[in-house]
Amino acid sequence: MTFRTEDTAPWIFTIGLFVFWEAVCRIFSVDSFILPAPSEIFSAAVRYAGPLWRNSFVTLWTTLVGFLLAVGFGLLLGLVVGWSRTIYRGLYPVMIGFNSIPKVAVVPILVVWFGVGEVPAIITAFLISFFPIVVNVATGLATIEPEMEDVLRALGASKLDVMLKIGIPRAMPYFFGSLKVAITLAFVGAVVSETLAANAGLGHLMTQAGSNFQMPLVFAGLLALAIEGIGMYAVCAWLEYRMTGWAHRSTMNA
């Protein structure tokens, strides 16, 4: 492996940010209630490692369950929507309308229906993240090159043949690309819901810590969120790369 400065840049910048932050807090002796220094945040993270782990895990699994539901449902709906122009035209405005509702507004309804707990978090994660999957899959199907379709149709291929041989493989890079966006949104949805109404999860932990004026713990929660978010994003990005290597080497229309 060759060593390149470029590879270490993200680490240098991250560490630099924390050093700068620490320095600012010390030099101006910022009240730790306003902005705790990284050292305080890290020590809070160590002290409360147990609760942080437990709640991170809750957030992780609610996010993932919501995300997986979104993947299944989004893939299915995307295939249906991309299949026919009529369905596409009919369903698109409905979906746009649905997607434009801020999902925070739905959480109180979910709480009435399912009570305070993990279920509203899962459903919020699901609701907020399925849309990009649907749109991407449908776009992949709807943008098949007409000439490619002609080649198959002239041979007597059915719509199903065209979908299986061209449409679905072609939609895969769009699908895997949308997962990165979807997992981020699912995470946002789960945390928002936890913040509003839950007994566990990082969102809940941070609300609790906040009302107890434990600012370093609140920030430790933020740190945990960042790490978890980056981790899930990285997994999706890796998955995208592994599953659709061909799409990175060729332009779709070449």
Binding site: D150, V151, A154, L155, A157, K165, I166, R170, W246, A247
Partner: peptide, 17 residues
Amino acid sequence: PVKIAGMAFQNANMLPW
């Protein structure tokens, strides 16, 4: 569709996968 024809276009339209 006549099914006895082969077709080729200006764009080779190869499936990249």
